[in-house]
Amino acid sequence: MADQPFLARVRRKLPELHPAERRLGELVCDFPGELASYSASELAALAGVSNATVTRFVRRLGYESYEDARRDARDEASSGSRLYLQHTGRADAAEPARFMETDINNLRETLGDIAQDDVDGLATAMLGARKIWCVGYRAANPMAHYLQWQLLQAVDDPIPVPGGGQTMGEHVARMSKTDVVIMFGLRRRVSGFSELLGTVGETGARVALISDEGMAMNRDVVWHFRCATRSSGPLFSHVGVMALINLIANRTIELAAESGRRRLQHIEGYNDLLREL
């Protein structure tokens, strides 16, 4: 069990625990961030158990001490699990004002750290690329599709991947050094993401990485944009990511100049003809 993540240990042991320990275990399963944040005495008081129960609980999980268990919980929290964003006693967490403040800060941190030259460099590269690939998994998959939809106003046939039932191998095999690949690496990242990123880089394509703020700056890609994703609730906030997409798409249209204007006029002409809007 020593090689299992913290929460996996708790869930596995839960049916075997005595009532007081089980009550503590259920609290930890629902709000693992409490153990990552609180001392043993604070956690005991929160669960309504004794300090001795906390000690027995962590030993049943295979830890020598509470600090060892808390260290594992903190490491797991840093991986981006949304469970660790939940805390007890936060009735005000869902207040609109709290979410607004957090999201405004995310916008400031995200856009405030972006260099205009990087945005212009990516936009210019996309306008001259053979193909543009927008790669996103999990929550980032619809973002990749949204970016593709916005880029259609300025470039031909950007490709969002992977689609349903697809593997990335069939797409990476078609990438070349004349392409631009925009990869979303938002937590929690899928297994093998680092290997995929490295493999895409080996094709010679110019890579733009869009990640959360928890990823260290990657010097192996041409552009790395880090977005603040903090939240006042259990789900990550992606307003910063959407703002970045908006900035990139608009700048690409602007740099397309006359050809971009003609393309937009062509699109609007067909919208009017087909009465779709």
Results as ranks from 00 to 15, higher is better:
Gly80Ile: 04
Arg9Met: 01
Gly48Met: 02
Arg108Ala: 13
Ala8Met: 07
Met100Asn: 14
His18Asp: 13
Asp30Ser: 13
Gly48Ile: 04
Tyr38Ala: 14
Gly80Cys: 08
Ser78Gln: 11
His87Tyr: 15
Thr55Cys: 15
Leu46Ser: 10
Arg98Ala: 07
Arg11Lys: 09
Leu14Glu: 08
Ala69Lys: 08
Arg11Trp: 08
Arg71Asp: 13
Arg90Thr: 11
Ser37Asp: 15
Ala20Val: 04
Glu34Thr: 02
Asp3His: 04
Tyr63Glu: 09
Asn106Thr: 01
Arg56Trp: 09
Arg9Thr: 06
Gly62Trp: 03
Ala93Ser: 14
Ala40Phe: 00
Ile114Val: 15
Ala93Met: 07
Phe6Ser: 03
Arg22Gly: 01
Ser65Pro: 08
Ala91Ile: 09
Phe6Glu: 00
Glu64Phe: 10
Ala73Glu: 00
Phe57Leu: 07
Leu46Ala: 09
Leu27Ile: 05
Phe31Arg: 03
Phe99Gly: 03
Arg59Tyr: 05
Ser79Ala: 15
Ser78Tyr: 10
Gln4Asn: 10
Met100Thr: 12
Asp103Thr: 11
Leu27Pro: 05
Thr88Ala: 15
Ala115Arg: 12
Tyr38Asn: 13
Gly89Phe: 04
Ala36Pro: 02
Arg22Val: 06
Glu109Arg: 07
Glu16Tyr: 10
Val49Met: 09
Ala40Tyr: 07
Leu17Glu: 03
Ala8Trp: 07
Leu35Glu: 06
Val28Pro: 05
Ala20Asn: 08
Glu26Asp: 11
Asp113Cys: 11
Glu109Gln: 10
Ala45Pro: 06
Gly80His: 00
Leu7Pro: 02
Gly25Phe: 00
Asn105Ala: 15
Ala91Met: 11
Glu21Ala: 14
Arg71Asn: 12
Leu7Thr: 01
Ala97Ile: 01
Phe31Gly: 05
Leu35Asp: 07
Leu46Cys: 09
Pro19Ile: 03
Ser39Cys: 01
Ile114Thr: 03
